[in-house]
Design a protein around this nucleic acid. Structure first.
Lengths: 183, 183, 183, 183
DNA sequence: ACAATCGGGACTGCCCGTTAGT
DNA sequence: ACTAACGGGCAGTCCCGATTGT
């Protein structure tokens, strides 16, 4: 079933809409239109709007798991990976999750399941950071700095200029491995 | 005129609704109901939903200006103040602004004016941090850590546990004034 | 597949409402109610009020095209047809168009498309008159007299009494074919 | 009372709004704003929207009475005057009255009083035409031609081109006084 | 599996008029 | 006399999902 990868197309359409035009533009019609599916077809795959969003987080979580980190890569690697993925434009999974959360907050009703999935995603990331970086304070700092970058992405604020960001990153790396070692 | 401080009551109602139930709960009726004003009365003060939100950022900005910082208080003071105000529940101005931005993102159309105001608020904060903290890298780090705390507030994620947060804060303070000096 | 000719039913309802109670009575609910459709169903066929009105002019134009005139019928025929259709109650297409225009004028915003359609309808009529009636001055007079009748219909003024109208019509016919001939 | 001719200013504002932006733009606020009066002030002079419009027809009727015709001026004079005033832009009284009627039709409820006043205005005109022009058929034709011009004005249709209009006018004048006499 | 059609409900904006103040 | 604050109500839009049919 799913003759032409429609399910994926729908999820792609949703994601694109989300990052390009924000949560407000996400309605069954718009998603269906962009995915080149009929409205009814969309409802066939996802029984409701919530299911649609849930599908997206699920996919994002899976991708993140795969992408994020070769475990055992060392402190320097996870720091760089995490900060990079947090500050890149919204095609990445983490910013996407944040946008999703904003979407959820914007709608009434409880969305515990999705909220839980998102929390889980962040939990995984946090855990990984702590595992690779010995010092918990440093790990916590990295996590928060990364989250800060996500926030600026999310709300469209002017973030720190690249040079400053590089400086911050370097200072964190130095604390992870003062002598340039791999962690 | 303005028989009973209604304008303020309206803004209070909006803010409460925003922090308690999220953007989705903010509609003219709910705000009016909570403020004990009629819908028409609300419209007398704020011609549109956007004007309503704009009124709130304006007030928040003004309060923040007043609250934030005795200028010249030194690096340690601004760091503590900023991180504290970022991690407290959403009654504070900064988290409120973030919620506002999330609200705006959820609605279609451009809201440049409000977005600009919010950006200005953050600009003020950033400037203050850099002014009081000599080291720009440290200032940038503080800013991002604070933003990270805001994010967890905003999306309802579990933040770092208090002990860890205290550790992070202390490490930043130490870098500001290694010997415990006032900065 | 339009289960029960609903589209037509909606247009009928709109037209009836328009001629019976005037533009002020035309709202989504009233139209939907009279057409025995739900409001949502109405919106499925016509995305906006403007689209609704546009649909009506379109239909009216098509009908007019069909009704108006066996081309080549001669001057007497078109004169009689035109003046008759202009002075009959508002079930006919021309008065309907005028009511529509009044409706449009009453709402803010530009409605260029519809206005254009209406202008086109009148253009067709004018052209036909000139084609069948050799004398341009006479054709112009007929057109204006007919429009005058439309106006009295449209604004509900007391028109000329039937005898006078008959006299006017006869005098125009006489000028078209003084000897009673061309029909 | 009426310190600064406010009543007149309000009526002027209403008229301007009506001819410039159509009935849809006429609301208490807009009228008050353009007249540089407060909303309350407007309501002080005119208890309701209907009263406002009634005030305008009253004024227009009075002006028309004064403008229209030196009685006893003869057939040619009234014909020319009437057709001219009907085809001029909407600053004149007759087109204004039509716009008013359209406005009334666009609102729900009965407006018998105003409708009656407007009918009376047209009655006066008709009477005058018949009095000055001996031939009732000709008078009726003139009345209808004039009304036709009003209609094109009112609905924004392209009217007859000036040359044709001149031809029509001339032909009517000729019938009033074939030998060029003053009628 | 997929698509068209339909229905109920809700949000935003705003009009019009009253009532309280200056 | 004149102004401003305020109230109730509704129009217009459209979203989301269920129900049909193919």
């Amino acid at each position: 079933v799913d003759a032409g990868g429609k399910r994926e197309r729908i999820l792609d359409a949703l994601q694109d809409l989300l990052v390009e035009q924000g949560p407000g533009a996400v309605t069954p019609d718009t998603v269906a239109a962009r995915a080149q599916v009929s409205e009814g077809g969309l409802l066939h795959y996802f029984r409701s709007k919530e299911a649609l969003l849930a599908g997206l987080v699920e996919r994002a979580a899976a991708r993140l798991e795969a992408d994020l980190a070769p475990p055992g890569a060392g402190a320097r690697a996870v720091i760089e990976t995490y900060l990079a993925s947090s500050s890149t434009p919204a095609e990445e999974e983490l910013p996407l999750c944040c946008t999703l959360v904003a979407t959820l907050r914007g709608s009434t009703g409880a969305h515990d399941e999705i909220a839980g999935s998102v929390a889980a995603v962040f939990g995984v990331v946090t855990e990984r950071l702590h595992a690779e970086i010995g010092d918990p304070v440093l790990a916590g700092t990295v996590r928060l700095v990364g989250d800060g970058l996500l926030l600026t992405e999310l709300v469209g604020l002017p973030g720190p200029d690249p040079a400053l960001l590089a400086g911050v990153t370097r200072s964190l790396l130095d604390r992870a491995a003062p002598h340039g070692g791999a962690g």
